[in-house]
Design a protein around this nucleic acid. Structure first.
Lengths: 152, 152
DNA sequence: TGGATCGACTTGAACATTCAAGTCCCGACT
DNA sequence: AGTCGGGACTTGAATGTTCAAGTCGATCCA
């Protein structure tokens, strides 16, 4: 029951802060954030969908909304992979830089500030176990992301 | 990042099982489940919304859907409180009894089976802390629910 | 008595996500 | 060379949630 309560309260709280301060939902924020860390600030749609944790269809709709706001733009890649890439515009980068501190502050306030360092370590292990059981796909993307961030 | 991955993977997995096997989403399941445990298998809308973790508006829409399926029915309470109650029908009770085992099994599989007993205790404390920070409302409803279940 | 306000809802429109096609190109098989 | 299947999207409709009114008694004063 406690876990369910957290699942019900944390994502809405995070979303509310982003929505209020930047007019983005968490998924859209994740898209911008992932793009900002990618080489050339661009990424293939399919790969981005994996990293941001959504389906291709969801990403396609979200990309359309972000494109409307000129934070992002689509770019067809010719050549052997025949795919479309999403690229962060300069305006998008600026926008993200403005949005990030508030989001980080909220994440800190709701999670890190209320947990001891041991609990932070515990929740990492627990969350990884549950994620692996619930969605091997997401778990794999997570491991990739962790490896990538370790390289920094 | 691990926590985010869990937030993204667990609810969809739970929803998917319920949807596949019973055609309910988790919120609708929660409504039926709460009603089944209430005295007289009925509860005031506003109170039910709190217990099930949603807004009144969301509950009202969901109640309409469940009423369509005759799992539940609305009942205006006259008298000093002037509110509407939602009551579980016999068909609703039967339906819930059929849906519950699969849901419980899935919850066990995705959470309890992959955690040690110590981790289960850890996640309880962690989730309560985060819930309190993210939504005092939900945290209060949770405490109430815990007290209620302790009385059994 | 007569508003003003409040709580408990309901409703409909706006928005986001999912779902089921549909398109387009590529590479493999025959 | 032709076509079959598959990957990478896009699109539109269906579904569910949120948001902003709107309704309807009850209660609070003045």
């Amino acid at each position: 029951m406690s876990l369910i309560a957290m699942l019900m309260s944390l994502p809405p709280a995070i979303d509310a802060q982003l929505k209020r301060d930047s007019g983005l939902n968490f998924f859209e924020y994740s898209i911008l954030s992932q793009l900002s860390g990618a080489p050339g600030r661009r990424m293939q749609m399919a790969r981005l969908a994996q990293m941001a944790g959504g389906t291709l269809s969801r990403l396609s709709h979200a990309a359309s909304r972000l494109e409307e706001r000129e934070l992002v733009h689509r770019h067809l890649v010719t050549g052997e992979s025949r795919c479309t890439e999403l690229a962060l515009t300069d305006a998008g980068m600026t926008f993200l830089e403005a949005a990030a501190p508030g989001h980080v502050r909220e994440a800190r306030r709701l999670v890190f500030d209320v947990l001891t360092p041991e609990q932070v370590a515990q929740v990492r292990d627990i969350a990884q176990s549950i994620t692996t059981a619930a969605s091997p796909e997401v778990a794999r993307a997570l491991r990739e992301a962790i490896v990538a961030s370790d390289r920094l």
